[in-house]
């Protein structure tokens, strides 16, 4: 390094240890911290602060869960204009949900898609649909590169096509759960892969990781017409999602987990009975019957995600 040049001004004064009129470092830091905190606190309501600092739902217990549910019910009731209930029912013992989809029956009518939209309060604009029905050519078989999700003939089924609805496969080895950096999504004991919408940071790593295109992002604020809102909600299911988080099929967790749980909305809506649902741990269930008597195949089975969603041909 070069030698420095001699300074222009040459005095013998000692450097001033504490410059007058300036803040000391301690004062500066304290003031900034106080300023930041006060701005933050002033701009938030109590509910807003509680929401911001809420822990991961999986780590909450007892009273904390009740408080969160109460806050959400109040918030959604105001938002929607009528009373809603938000359930936090946990997974039951001895239950592992499985799904069967009969490709020899599906006619591609998309009634399942719209039943899901209604049941789960999916955004109409921007449009989010958890179920996507793919039209396949009979000649190519199940070949997604030849598939078309935008078919719109006058009548279905079309003679040279068959139809394959897809949604979350509720994998046993979910790549999305592996990929999430914030542990905002995980597999529940009853097999449903859930998302904590209040913990999700919206990084969309899970969406890149999902092989089935099952996850959907709220790019804009979701809109649901007030008179179409389903008021029976579950924390992990169909409660109104904020903008900027990921969502996906939850096997209608708000329906299946309740005592005397009902079938998911898509199963109810299918006019031809192509959709089957049940408890994989119950030998008498229809899903176990399907596994025993029919020949099932797994979508993208080579990826070893081990879905609990079984496609089959009942014929």
């Amino acid at each position: 390094m070069k030698d420095s040049e001699t300074p222009i001004v040459n005095t013998n004064e000692k450097p001033d240890p504490e410059p007058r009129g300036h803040l000391t470092r301690r004062q500066f830091l304290a003031l900034s911290a106080a300023g930041a905190v006060s701005v933050f606190l002033a701009g938030c309501t109590k509910a807003g602060r509680e929401a911001f600092f809420q822990s991961r739902f999986k780590e909450l217990t007892g009273k904390d869960i009740d408080k969160v549910i109460a806050r959400l019910e109040k918030q959604y009731s105001e938002q929607v204009g009528r009373a809603v209930s938000v359930s936090a029912t946990r997974a039951a013992e001895g239950v592992l949900f499985g799904y069967g989809l009969d490709l020899s029956r599906c006619i591609g009518c998309r009634r399942c898609v719209y039943a899901c939209v209604e049941e789960n309060n999916l955004s109409r604009d921007p449009q989010i649909q958890w179920i996507r029905v793919l039209r396949m050519n009979k000649e190519s078989g199940v070949d997604i590169m030849e598939s078309d999700a935008y078919y719109n003939p006058a009548k279905v089924p079309e003679p040279d096509a068959f139809y394959m609805p897809t949604a979350c496969q509720q994998c046993r080895h979910p790549p999305c759960v592996k990929a999430c950096p914030a542990k905002a999504t995980w597999q529940e004991p009853d097999g449903i892969v859930v998302i904590d919408y209040d913990w999700c940071i919206g990084c969309r790593c899970c969406m890149a990781a999902c092989p089935y295109g099952a996850r959907h992002f709220n790019w804009g604020p979701p809109t649901v017409p007030k008179d179409h809102i389903n008021p029976h909600m579950h924390y992990f299911g169909n409660r109104p999602r904020p903008r900027g988080v990921v969502e996906k099929c939850t096997f209608c967790i708000q329906r299946v987990r309740e005592p005397n749980g009902h079938y998911p909305a898509c199963v109810e809506a299918c006019p031809v009975g192509a959709r089957k649902f049940g408890n994989l741990l119950d030998e008498q269930s229809e899903i176990r019957y399907i596994l025993r008597e029919k020949r099932v195949f797994i979508f993208k089975e080579e990826l070893n995600t081990q879905p609990k969603f079984y496609y089959f041909y009942a014929t």
């Binding site: 006619i107 009518c109 998309r110 935008y150 719109n152 003939p153 006058a154 009548k155 279905v156």
Partner: peptide, 24 residues
């Protein structure tokens, strides 16, 4: 579901296709 005299399930009109991503 099946008219016993003509049981083949009748085709029906599908519900609308999804909005394409470029139109969102």
């Amino acid at each position: 579901c099946h008219d016993p005299h003509s049981p083949k399930y009748k085709s029906i009109a599908p519900m609308p296709p999804p909005v394409r991503p470029e139109n969102i």
